[in-house]
Amino acid sequence: MNEIMLINMLGEIEPSLLQDDYMEKDMKRGFLSFLYRLFKKTASELEYNPLHLTISQDLNSVPEHFNCTEEIEIQEIHSDDSNKKSEETNTIGTFESLDDADDKNVLSISIFKKNIRTLIKIISGIVAAFILIIGIVIILLKRHKSGTKLYEKKIQIIY
């Protein structure tokens, strides 16, 4: 029984032996990996966003009749940007390997750590801002309370 014969014979296999859900599982996994890649992409875009935004704004603001020198400059900016990106991706190491078709679904530890770090930074920022706002509110309330007390006292003196 060679492989070709096996493939041909499996075409007539009993359907009860095929009550599997391997393909459905693969599809689900594919969807999850798509979500993961989307998340990764947005995270990386967020990282590069400041520079990217300025360039795109520059490009939008370029008049229709701009000189060739300006175009070259913009291209240089772009190439610098791409170089920076490539350098950064090289330094990150396994980050770029995630983009490869081969390792689409592999969860790289370094990127995972990086995501966690950014997440922690965001959460700590929110918490700090929250604490600050609460502190300001408390201070304001206290001042307001003492103000009313003084006012009440003044009223008492009048009486």
Partner: peptide, 10 residues
């Protein structure tokens, strides 16, 4: 069975 089905059926 999963390996065989995946390889030679799908």
């Amino acid at each position: 069975k999963e390996l065989v089905i995946r390889k030679y059926f799908y």
